[in-house]
């Protein structure tokens, strides 16, 4: 996932520079003034990097899921365990045996993050 993001970022920057150079050569068929090339390359780079940063921030924000917590209890003693949610978990599911001989079951499943 991270590798794909890096490849995409490099690809975006290179494509932006290429497009800028193509546009410059089309605008100035004889010789492109060096100052303009420098200025436009810098501007293109800044725009490309900013857009990548904004896109990454948005992706990070969208993928931020609240942590799901599972509370496991013993039906005989006061044993209590807190762990992350696994697929297939549900409330009252028996998940094993306690050292006291009682059954361990899922008592609660909830998310920590409060909904806005």
């Amino acid at each position: 996932m991270k590798m794909t993001a890096i490849v995409m970022a490099i690809f975006t920057i290179l494509t932006s520079i290429l497009i800028t150079l193509l546009l410059l050569s089309a605008t100035f068929p004889e010789e492109v003034p060096k100052d303009i090339v420098k200025l436009l390359t810098v501007v293109t780079l800044v725009i490309a990097i900013t857009s990548i940063a904004l896109q990454q921030r948005e992706l990070k924000r969208a993928s931020k899921e609240p942590k799901k917590i599972v509370i496991i209890r013993c039906d005989k003693c006061s044993y209590r365990l807190e762990r992350s949610f696994k697929e297939g978990d549900y409330i009252l599911k028996t998940v094993g045996q306690c050292s006291c001989g009682g059954l361990l079951y899922i008592d609660s499943i909830y998310v920590e993050k409060k909904v806005k």
């Binding site: 799901k68 499943i109 909830y110 998310v111 920590e112 993050k113 909904v115 806005k116």
Partner: peptide
């Protein structure tokens, strides 16, 4: 609870209300 909470994963406050 709010409408969003009603159809989103149960929050700690709501689970503890049980």
């Amino acid at each position: 609870e709010s409408f969003e909470e009603a159809i989103s994963p149960m929050t700690r406050e709501i689970a503890e209300a049980a």
